[in-house]
């Protein structure tokens, strides 16, 4: 897999939209492409993983194991989205498991190499961390909306997502 091919793959990703081309070129040096067949495990919850992934094609699910409930699906990710942030920002221990739901293609970036690049070139590091922060902020907001459980049945008298009736209000 040549570096040009990887660079082209990175330029297509929404995650790196508007990132300067010289930053993408440097990122390509630390990246490679990987295919994941539908149903294959990319990494398991609780294991250590040194890679950050950017999903190029396909769909990947994040699952967490909950005692008594089994494997709970937390989130699905689509093209252009980041997977495995713990490799870069945490200690490399995965907080969820990732499994490909469709035949998928990922850009794989060695997190140690990426961190070294970030530390040696702060402009590069700022561009990468800014994208990471934006992606995680978006995911945090989405998680809050899930937490609100907006579609749950509410007791009569509470605001519900149907036309309110007389007698339902205060």
């Amino acid at each position: 897999m040549d570096v040009e091919h990887v660079r082209y793959a990175l330029e297509e990703l929404r995650f790196l939209a508007e990132v300067p081309s010289e930053v993408i070129a440097r990122l390509a040096d630390a990246a490679s492409l990987q295919r994941a067949a539908s149903g294959s495990v990319i990494f398991r919850e609780g294991t250590r993983n040194a890679n950050l992934y950017l999903l190029r094609k396909g769909k990947v699910a994040l699952d967490m194991k909950v005692p008594g409930r089994g494997s709970v699906r937390i989130l699905t990710l689509g093209p252009g989205e980041m997977i495995g942030w713990s490799a870069l920002l945490g200690e490399g221990k995965m907080t969820a498991g990732a499994v490909a739901l469709d035949d998928s293609e990922l850009v794989v970036i060695d997190s140690h190499g990426l961190l070294r690049l970030c530390e040696s070139d702060h402009h590069f590091g700022f561009q990468i961390m800014r994208r990471m922060a934006a992606a995680l902020a978006q995911r945090l907001v989405a998680t809050r909306l899930q937490l609100l459980d907006l579609f749950a049945d509410l007791p009569a008298g509470a605001a519900a997502p149907v036309r309110l009736e007389p007698g339902d209000g205060p």
Binding site: A61, R69, G70, V72, T76, L145, D149, F151
Partner: peptide, 16 residues
């Protein structure tokens, strides 16, 4: 918003 691992559709909010 929520599903177990048998669900192969999307999980997450519509804004995503």
């Amino acid at each position: 918003d929520r599903a177990d691992s048998r669900w192969t559709g999307h999980v997450g909010v519509a804004t995503l």
